[in-house]
Protein backbone atom coordinates (compact mmCIF):
# COMPACT_ATOMS: atom_id res chain seq x y z
CA UNK A 1 0.00 0.00 0.00
CA UNK A 2 1.34 3.36 -1.10
CA UNK A 3 -0.56 5.33 1.52
CA UNK A 4 1.79 7.04 3.95
CA UNK A 5 1.35 6.92 7.72
CA UNK A 6 0.72 10.64 7.69
CA UNK A 7 -2.06 10.20 5.16
CA UNK A 8 -3.62 7.42 7.25
CA UNK A 9 -3.78 9.80 10.20
CA UNK A 10 -5.31 12.41 7.90
CA UNK A 11 -7.94 9.93 6.70
CA UNK A 12 -8.75 8.85 10.26
CA UNK A 13 -9.05 12.47 11.37
CA UNK A 14 -11.32 13.49 8.47
CA UNK A 15 -13.58 10.45 8.83
CA UNK A 16 -13.93 10.92 12.58
CA UNK A 17 -14.44 14.66 12.29
CA UNK A 18 -17.41 14.16 9.98
CA UNK A 19 -18.80 11.46 12.30
CA UNK A 20 -18.56 13.65 15.38
CA UNK A 21 -20.00 16.62 13.52
CA UNK A 22 -23.02 14.61 12.40
CA UNK A 23 -23.55 13.10 15.85
CA UNK A 24 -23.59 16.63 17.22
CA UNK A 25 -26.11 17.68 14.57
CA UNK A 26 -28.29 14.74 15.61
CA UNK A 27 -28.08 15.84 19.25
CA UNK A 28 -28.95 19.43 18.39
CA UNK A 29 -31.85 18.20 16.34
CA UNK A 30 -32.98 16.16 19.35
CA UNK A 31 -32.99 19.38 21.35
CA UNK A 32 -35.24 20.89 18.67
CA UNK A 33 -32.61 23.45 17.68
CA UNK A 34 -32.41 22.52 13.98
CA UNK A 35 -35.31 23.91 11.92
CA UNK A 36 -36.61 22.03 8.91
CA UNK A 37 -35.26 18.72 7.75
CA UNK A 38 -31.89 16.98 7.74
CA UNK A 39 -30.15 14.48 5.52
CA UNK A 40 -27.46 13.06 7.76
CA UNK A 41 -24.16 11.83 6.34
CA UNK A 42 -23.74 9.23 9.14
CA UNK A 43 -22.40 6.00 7.65
CA UNK A 44 -20.94 7.58 4.50
CA UNK A 45 -18.08 9.49 6.18
CA UNK A 46 -15.29 7.55 4.47
CA UNK A 47 -16.39 8.82 1.06
CA UNK A 48 -16.03 12.50 1.89
CA UNK A 49 -12.86 11.81 3.86
CA UNK A 50 -11.18 9.71 1.16
CA UNK A 51 -12.08 12.08 -1.67
CA UNK A 52 -11.10 15.33 0.05
CA UNK A 53 -7.84 13.82 1.35
CA UNK A 54 -6.81 13.38 -2.30
CA UNK A 55 -7.50 17.04 -3.14
CA UNK A 56 -5.56 20.24 -2.62
CA UNK A 57 -7.07 23.11 -0.67
CA UNK A 58 -7.47 25.07 -3.91
CA UNK A 59 -9.44 22.24 -5.57
CA UNK A 60 -13.22 22.30 -5.58
CA UNK A 61 -15.98 19.99 -4.44
CA UNK A 62 -19.62 20.09 -5.50
CA UNK A 63 -21.94 18.82 -2.80
CA UNK A 64 -25.48 17.41 -2.60
CA UNK A 65 -28.56 17.57 -0.36
CA UNK A 66 -26.65 15.22 1.98
CA UNK A 67 -23.79 17.64 2.14
CA UNK A 68 -22.59 18.25 5.71
CA UNK A 69 -19.86 15.64 5.38
CA UNK A 70 -18.44 17.05 2.15
CA UNK A 71 -18.27 20.55 3.58
CA UNK A 72 -16.67 19.55 6.88
CA UNK A 73 -14.20 17.15 5.26
CA UNK A 74 -13.14 19.84 2.75
CA UNK A 75 -12.15 22.00 5.68
CA UNK A 76 -15.04 24.40 6.18
CA UNK A 77 -15.31 26.23 9.49
CA UNK A 78 -17.44 23.99 11.76
CA UNK A 79 -18.68 26.97 13.77
CA UNK A 80 -20.17 28.62 10.69
CA UNK A 81 -21.46 25.28 9.43
CA UNK A 82 -23.31 24.43 12.64
CA UNK A 83 -24.60 27.98 12.98
CA UNK A 84 -26.00 27.68 9.45
CA UNK A 85 -27.85 24.48 10.35
CA UNK A 86 -29.40 26.33 13.28
CA UNK A 87 -30.44 29.25 11.07
CA UNK A 88 -28.16 31.77 12.75
CA UNK A 89 -26.75 34.98 11.30
CA UNK A 90 -23.21 33.71 11.91
CA UNK A 91 -23.89 30.73 9.62
CA UNK A 92 -21.82 30.31 6.49
CA UNK A 93 -24.86 31.37 4.44
CA UNK A 94 -26.13 33.88 7.04
CA UNK A 95 -29.04 31.54 7.76
CA UNK A 96 -30.35 31.74 4.18
CA UNK A 97 -29.50 28.19 3.16
CA UNK A 98 -29.59 25.68 6.01
CA UNK A 99 -28.80 21.99 5.76
CA UNK A 100 -29.47 21.55 2.05
CA UNK A 101 -27.44 24.57 0.95
CA UNK A 102 -24.59 24.40 3.44
CA UNK A 103 -21.61 25.89 1.64
CA UNK A 104 -18.32 27.58 2.24
CA UNK A 105 -16.84 28.98 -0.94
CA UNK A 106 -13.49 29.90 0.53
CA UNK A 107 -12.99 26.29 1.61
CA UNK A 108 -13.53 25.21 -2.00
CA UNK A 109 -17.15 24.12 -1.81
CA UNK A 110 -19.15 25.17 -4.87
CA UNK A 111 -22.41 24.55 -3.09
CA UNK A 112 -24.81 22.04 -1.64
CA UNK A 113 -28.07 21.75 -3.50
CA UNK A 114 -31.62 20.71 -2.72
CA UNK A 115 -32.31 19.48 -6.25
CA UNK A 116 -30.98 15.97 -6.80
CA UNK A 117 -28.54 15.82 -9.74
CA UNK A 118 -28.36 19.59 -10.17
CA UNK A 119 -24.72 19.76 -9.06
CA UNK A 120 -23.30 17.86 -12.02
CA UNK A 121 -23.62 20.64 -14.62
CA UNK A 122 -22.18 23.17 -12.17
CA UNK A 123 -19.21 20.90 -11.49
CA UNK A 124 -18.66 20.46 -15.23
CA UNK A 125 -18.62 24.24 -15.63
CA UNK A 126 -16.24 24.76 -12.73
CA UNK A 127 -13.93 22.17 -14.28
CA UNK A 128 -14.19 23.94 -17.63
CA UNK A 129 -13.20 27.13 -15.84
CA UNK A 130 -10.17 25.43 -14.25
CA UNK A 131 -9.18 24.11 -17.66
CA UNK A 132 -9.67 27.41 -19.55
CA UNK A 133 -7.88 29.43 -16.87
CA UNK A 134 -5.07 26.87 -16.76
CA UNK A 135 -5.11 26.63 -12.97
CA UNK A 136 -4.42 22.85 -12.75
CA UNK A 137 -7.19 22.69 -10.14
CA UNK A 138 -9.68 19.84 -10.25
CA UNK A 139 -13.32 19.44 -9.23
CA UNK A 140 -14.74 16.47 -7.32
CA UNK A 141 -18.48 16.21 -7.80
CA UNK A 142 -20.48 14.17 -5.28
CA UNK A 143 -23.88 12.79 -6.18
CA UNK A 144 -26.00 9.81 -5.22
CA UNK A 145 -27.24 6.67 -6.93
CA UNK A 146 -30.58 8.42 -7.37
CA UNK A 147 -28.95 11.30 -9.24
CA UNK A 148 -27.32 8.92 -11.68
CA UNK A 149 -30.74 8.33 -13.25
CA UNK A 150 -31.27 12.01 -13.99
CA UNK A 151 -30.64 13.60 -17.38
CA UNK A 152 -27.86 15.81 -16.05
CA UNK A 153 -25.79 12.68 -15.37
CA UNK A 154 -25.70 11.83 -19.07
CA UNK A 155 -25.35 15.44 -20.21
CA UNK A 156 -22.56 16.29 -17.80
CA UNK A 157 -20.52 13.10 -18.11
CA UNK A 158 -20.72 13.43 -21.87
CA UNK A 159 -19.67 17.08 -21.84
CA UNK A 160 -16.81 16.36 -19.45
CA UNK A 161 -15.61 13.52 -21.65
CA UNK A 162 -15.62 15.40 -24.97
CA UNK A 163 -13.76 18.34 -23.44
CA UNK A 164 -11.50 16.22 -21.17
CA UNK A 165 -12.52 18.28 -18.17
CA UNK A 166 -10.60 17.93 -14.87
CA UNK A 167 -13.54 16.55 -12.91
CA UNK A 168 -13.93 13.42 -10.79
CA UNK A 169 -17.48 12.11 -10.68
CA UNK A 170 -18.07 10.55 -7.25
CA UNK A 171 -21.28 8.57 -7.05
CA UNK A 172 -22.16 7.68 -3.46
CA UNK A 173 -24.23 4.58 -3.97
CA UNK A 174 -26.10 4.03 -0.71
CA UNK A 175 -28.51 1.72 -2.55
CA UNK A 176 -31.65 3.75 -1.83
CA UNK A 177 -33.11 6.81 -3.52
CA UNK A 178 -35.14 7.90 -0.50
CA UNK A 179 -37.01 4.60 -0.02
CA UNK A 180 -36.68 3.14 -3.51
CA UNK A 181 -34.00 0.43 -3.75
CA UNK A 182 -31.53 0.63 -6.61
CA UNK A 183 -32.68 -2.77 -7.87
CA UNK A 184 -35.88 -1.04 -9.03
CA UNK A 185 -34.16 1.90 -10.73
CA UNK A 186 -30.91 0.69 -12.26
CA UNK A 187 -30.65 -2.21 -14.74
CA UNK A 188 -26.90 -2.75 -14.37
CA UNK A 189 -24.78 -4.34 -11.66
CA UNK A 190 -22.95 -1.09 -11.04
CA UNK A 191 -23.30 2.58 -11.83
CA UNK A 192 -19.60 2.76 -12.62
CA UNK A 193 -20.05 0.63 -15.73
CA UNK A 194 -21.93 3.54 -17.32
CA UNK A 195 -18.52 5.24 -17.60
CA UNK A 196 -17.76 3.02 -20.56
CA UNK A 197 -20.53 4.70 -22.56
CA UNK A 198 -18.69 8.01 -22.20
CA UNK A 199 -15.25 6.50 -22.87
CA UNK A 200 -13.94 7.46 -19.41
CA UNK A 201 -12.49 5.24 -16.66
CA UNK A 202 -14.95 3.92 -14.08
CA UNK A 203 -14.43 1.85 -10.94
CA UNK A 204 -16.25 0.57 -7.87
CA UNK A 205 -14.76 0.92 -4.40
CA UNK A 206 -15.83 0.13 -0.86
CA UNK A 207 -17.16 3.50 0.19
CA UNK A 208 -16.82 2.65 3.87
CA UNK A 209 -13.09 2.20 3.50
CA UNK A 210 -11.46 5.64 3.41
CA UNK A 211 -8.19 4.21 2.09
CA UNK A 212 -9.88 2.61 -0.93
CA UNK A 213 -11.76 5.80 -1.69
CA UNK A 214 -8.58 7.86 -1.29
CA UNK A 215 -6.49 5.66 -3.58
CA UNK A 216 -9.09 5.62 -6.37
CA UNK A 217 -9.58 9.37 -6.10
CA UNK A 218 -5.85 10.06 -6.07
CA UNK A 219 -5.42 8.21 -9.34
CA UNK A 220 -8.35 10.07 -10.91
CA UNK A 221 -7.07 13.43 -9.62
CA UNK A 222 -3.65 12.77 -11.11
CA UNK A 223 -5.21 11.92 -14.47
CA UNK A 224 -7.43 15.00 -14.36
CA UNK A 225 -4.56 17.34 -13.44
CA UNK A 226 -2.43 16.00 -16.26
CA UNK A 227 -5.15 16.69 -18.83
CA UNK A 228 -6.37 13.09 -19.02
CA UNK A 229 -9.98 14.04 -18.40
CA UNK A 230 -12.72 12.84 -16.06
CA UNK A 231 -13.28 9.59 -14.15
CA UNK A 232 -16.29 8.01 -12.49
CA UNK A 233 -15.81 6.43 -9.06
CA UNK A 234 -18.67 4.53 -7.49
CA UNK A 235 -18.36 4.43 -3.73
CA UNK A 236 -20.68 1.78 -2.32
CA UNK A 237 -21.85 2.82 1.12
CA UNK A 238 -24.89 2.98 3.36
CA UNK A 239 -26.88 5.42 5.43
CA UNK A 240 -26.72 4.64 9.13
CA UNK A 241 -30.10 6.30 9.50
CA UNK A 242 -33.05 7.09 7.28
CA UNK A 243 -33.23 9.44 4.32
CA UNK A 244 -34.28 12.48 6.35
CA UNK A 245 -35.08 13.48 9.90
CA UNK A 246 -38.32 11.54 10.42
CA UNK A 247 -37.53 8.47 8.33
CA UNK A 248 -37.02 5.31 10.43
CA UNK A 249 -35.99 3.46 7.20
CA UNK A 250 -38.10 0.38 7.91
CA UNK A 251 -37.99 -0.54 4.22
CA UNK A 252 -34.43 -1.85 4.59
CA UNK A 253 -34.03 -5.56 5.51
CA UNK A 254 -32.51 -6.15 8.96
CA UNK A 255 -29.73 -8.43 7.65
CA UNK A 256 -28.72 -5.74 5.18
CA UNK A 257 -28.64 -3.05 7.86
CA UNK A 258 -26.65 -5.30 10.21
CA UNK A 259 -24.14 -6.10 7.47
CA UNK A 260 -23.45 -2.45 6.77
CA UNK A 261 -23.43 -1.37 10.41
CA UNK A 262 -20.70 -3.96 10.93
CA UNK A 263 -18.66 -2.09 8.33
CA UNK A 264 -18.35 1.13 10.35
CA UNK A 265 -16.28 3.71 8.47
CA UNK A 266 -14.56 5.06 11.58
CA UNK A 267 -13.70 1.61 12.94
CA UNK A 268 -12.33 0.53 9.55
CA UNK A 269 -9.92 3.45 9.13
CA UNK A 270 -8.95 3.31 12.80
CA UNK A 271 -8.04 -0.35 12.61
CA UNK A 272 -6.05 0.17 9.40
CA UNK A 273 -4.17 3.08 10.98
CA UNK A 274 -3.44 1.05 14.11
CA UNK A 275 -2.39 -2.00 12.14
CA UNK A 276 -0.04 0.04 9.94
CA UNK A 277 1.30 1.68 13.08
CA UNK A 278 0.35 5.10 11.80
CA UNK A 279 -1.31 5.67 15.16
CA UNK A 280 -1.17 4.28 18.67
CA UNK A 281 -4.41 3.72 20.57
CA UNK A 282 -3.55 6.67 22.74
CA UNK A 283 -2.94 8.93 19.75
CA UNK A 284 -6.24 7.83 18.23
CA UNK A 285 -7.97 8.66 21.49
CA UNK A 286 -6.23 12.03 21.72
CA UNK A 287 -7.34 12.94 18.20
CA UNK A 288 -10.89 12.00 19.11
CA UNK A 289 -10.74 14.12 22.26
CA UNK A 290 -9.41 17.11 20.37
CA UNK A 291 -12.01 16.83 17.61
CA UNK A 292 -14.82 16.38 20.13
CA UNK A 293 -13.72 19.55 21.86
CA UNK A 294 -13.70 21.41 18.54
CA UNK A 295 -17.17 20.16 17.66
CA UNK A 296 -18.51 20.98 21.14
CA UNK A 297 -17.19 24.50 21.03
CA UNK A 298 -18.57 24.95 17.48
CA UNK A 299 -21.97 23.86 18.76
CA UNK A 300 -21.69 26.22 21.70
CA UNK A 301 -20.89 29.06 19.28
CA UNK A 302 -23.84 28.12 17.06
CA UNK A 303 -26.33 27.86 19.92
CA UNK A 304 -25.23 31.18 21.41
CA UNK A 305 -25.27 33.01 18.07
CA UNK A 306 -28.08 35.42 17.23
CA UNK A 307 -30.81 34.77 14.72
CA UNK A 308 -30.87 37.20 11.79
CA UNK A 309 -33.16 40.21 11.99
CA UNK A 310 -36.33 39.37 10.01
CA UNK A 311 -35.73 42.07 7.40
CA UNK A 312 -32.33 40.51 6.56
CA UNK A 313 -34.51 38.22 4.42
CA UNK A 314 -34.34 40.99 1.81
CA UNK A 315 -30.53 41.06 1.51
CA UNK A 316 -28.32 39.32 -1.06
CA UNK A 317 -30.80 38.85 -3.92
CA UNK A 318 -28.57 40.99 -6.14
CA UNK A 319 -25.07 42.35 -5.79
CA UNK A 320 -26.41 45.85 -5.33
CA UNK A 321 -29.87 47.29 -4.83
CA UNK A 322 -31.59 47.06 -8.18
Amino acid sequence: MAVTKKKLVDLYTRTLKVRLFEEKVWDLFGENLVPGTLHLYLGQEAVAAGVTAALKKSDWVQSTHRGHGHVVAKGADMKAALAELLGKRTGSCKGKGGSMHITEFKAGVLGATGVVASGLPIAAGAALSCQMRGTKEVVACFFGDGASNNGTFGESLNMSAIWKLPVIWIVENNFYAMGTPITLTCPSQSIAQRAEAYCIPGCVVDGNNAVEVYEATLEAVKRAREGGGPSLIECQTYRMRGHSRFDPAKYRPKEEVDFWLSKDAVEIIQSIALEKKALTRKEAKDIRKKLQKEVDSAADFAVKSEYPEPQEALDDVFAEVA
Binding site: W60, Q62, F105, L110, S118, L120, P121, I122, A123, A124, G125, A126, A127, L128, S129, C130, M132, R133, G151, T152, E155, S156, N158, M159, I162
Partner: peptide
Protein backbone atom coordinates in the same frame (compact mmCIF):
# COMPACT_ATOMS: atom_id res chain seq x y z
CA UNK B 1 -13.00 27.43 -30.67
CA UNK B 2 -12.33 27.46 -26.92
CA UNK B 3 -13.83 30.90 -26.42
CA UNK B 4 -16.66 30.39 -28.89
CA UNK B 5 -17.55 26.88 -27.92
CA UNK B 6 -20.03 24.56 -29.61
CA UNK B 7 -21.83 22.34 -27.13
CA UNK B 8 -23.85 19.14 -27.31
CA UNK B 9 -27.65 19.56 -27.26
CA UNK B 10 -27.75 19.60 -23.46
CA UNK B 11 -29.57 22.76 -22.39
CA UNK B 12 -29.60 22.07 -18.66
CA UNK B 13 -25.88 21.42 -18.66
CA UNK B 14 -25.16 24.39 -20.94
CA UNK B 15 -26.84 26.66 -18.40
CA UNK B 16 -25.37 24.81 -15.40
CA UNK B 17 -21.85 24.67 -16.80
CA UNK B 18 -22.04 28.37 -17.58
CA UNK B 19 -23.05 28.89 -13.97
CA UNK B 20 -20.19 26.74 -12.69
CA UNK B 21 -17.77 28.72 -14.84
CA UNK B 22 -19.25 32.03 -13.68
CA UNK B 23 -18.72 31.29 -9.98
CA UNK B 24 -15.12 30.23 -10.52
CA UNK B 25 -13.64 33.15 -12.41
CA UNK B 26 -15.00 33.27 -15.95
CA UNK B 27 -17.73 35.36 -17.57
CA UNK B 28 -19.77 33.05 -19.77
Amino acid sequence: DDRVRDTPISENTIAGAALGAAITGLIP
